[in-house]
Write a protein that binds this DNA or RNA. Structure first.
Length: 398
DNA sequence: TTTAGGG
DNA sequence: CCCTAAA
């Protein structure tokens, strides 16, 4: 039996640690040491999103059993393969030419005695099934998803020649597909595998992919990274593919792997909601207002970037929902925001003036680290910030 | 608890 | 925002 990945990519076909982690604290502390390997499991995307649909299709054909064992798509999948640089016409219109779309990752399992023709049909049926289930199109800029469907192209930067190169589209299967096997969450997917399959029957065209098969026995197909944050999920995206046009016939990701328990694969959602209540709810998002940013900047200019406790007491004493950790995090994002192009910024725009101060303060306190304890050196900051060589170039760094 | 960073 | 290792 071959498991063919039509993903186009060549990443190892290893399964994820466990497909059914939840965010419960107790589990966390037991798993943290492995986080490097699996991180946010696809199951966590419960808040409205989906991350892992499975589609089971069985069919007989010319004696050989052909069955699509799994159609997996992790949301952040398909991307525009190669898009043409758009041309701008005299009128304020932007023209696009999408060369081709890359289909979401698909795994197909067929008997090695199946005919090529039947394989083609199987693939076709699978793709059709996906399309039939409805798909959505996403837009990406700089590899990041543009969620704000209300923004105009120009506001998003999809109108200037420069940015068009980083424009991308994604195809995402519809969040509604729950086939036959009722969603279960087997802690340890039982391996339904005859020893015969243990024998790696790797395809000739798949040289490099070694040591992958062994893992395939215990690891679920590696889904592309999925984020948990409402605003940034899937943002990692596959930017590389957008610009590269050399990943088309990569169906060579043809590795033989033992058939996996169908039910085990059909795992995922639904049952998560129940445990939801027991999990400490994630705090609701509370975007910093410009005035808050202003207060934060001022405080950091004077206290530095290593005394968040003091910053909290000094400027956010009454804001119970702003912990010193939040302030520290906000500063981090502010520095980032100040460094990226305005088009890439989201949310309520922060006055450039403040962002400049952010960079200046950041540069200043980066050098004059753990300075003195004195809390009154705003003057020193302003003076040195102006002469700081980094202050000028910082804004130009991506 | 707070700091400092990665997730 | 969350989660933690360290301090």
């Amino acid at each position: 039996m071959y498991l063919i990945s039509l993903d186009g990519g060549l990443r190892p076909l290893h399964r994820k640690r466990k497909t059914c982690y939840n965010r419960e604290r107790h589990h966390r502390d037991v798993l943290y040491k492995r986080r490097k390997f699996y991180d946010r499991s696809s199951v966590e995307t419960f808040d409205g999103r989906f991350s892992c649909e499975r589609l089971l299709i069985h069919r007989k054909k010319a004696g050989a059993e052909i069955r699509v064992v799994q159609v997996q798509s992790n949301g952040a999948t398909s991307l525009v393969k190669g898009h043409h640089a758009s041309l701008r016409s005299k009128d304020s219109n932007v023209k696009f030419s999408i060369k081709s779309f890359k289909v979401p990752e698909i795994f197909i399992e067929v008997s090695e005695t199946a005919t090529v023709g039947s394989l083609k049909r199987t693939v076709m049926d699978t793709v059709t099934a996906i399309l039939g289930g409805g798909i959505r199109v996403g837009v990406l800029m700089h590899g990041k998803k543009v969620r704000d469907g209300n923004r105009t192209l120009s506001q998003t930067g999809i109108s200037s020649e420069d940015n068009l190169d980083t424009l991308g589209f994604t195809l995402e299967p519809h969040p509604v597909q729950a086939p036959s096997p009722p969603p279960v969450c087997p802690e340890d997917p039982p391996l339904v595998l005859p020893d015969a399959l243990q024998i790696v029957a790797r395809s000739p065209e798949t040289p490099a992919l070694d040591s992958v098969c062994p893992n395939a026995l215990t690891d679920p197909p590696s889904p592309t990274k999925t984020e948990t944050h409402e605003e940034s999920n899937h943002e990692q995206a596959i930017h590389a593919d957008v610009l590269t046009d050399t990943t088309l016939p990569d169906s060579r990701a043809l590795v033989a792997v033992p058939a996996m328990n169908v039910e085990a694969l059909a795992v995922v959602p639904l049952n998560q909601k129940s445990r939801r209540s027991e999990m400490a709810q994630r705090r609701t998002r509370r975007p910093f207002s410009v005035s808050e940013v202003e207060a934060l900047v001022r405080a950091v200019e004077e206290l530095g970037t290593g005394r968040w406790r003091d910053v909290k007491l000094r400027s956010f004493e009454d804001a119970d929902h702003r912990t010193y950790v939040d302030l520290k995090d906000k500063w981090k994002t502010l520095v980032h925001t100040a460094r990226i192009s305005p088009q890439q910024r989201r949310g309520e725009p922060v006055p450039q003036e403040l962002l400049d101060r952010v960079l200046a303060a950041h540069a200043y306190w980066s050098h004059h680290q753990a300075k003195q304890q004195g809390k009154h050196q705003a003057g020193a900051l302003k003076i040195e910030a102006l002469t700081d060589p980094n202050g000028a170039t910082a804004s130009n760094q991506l």
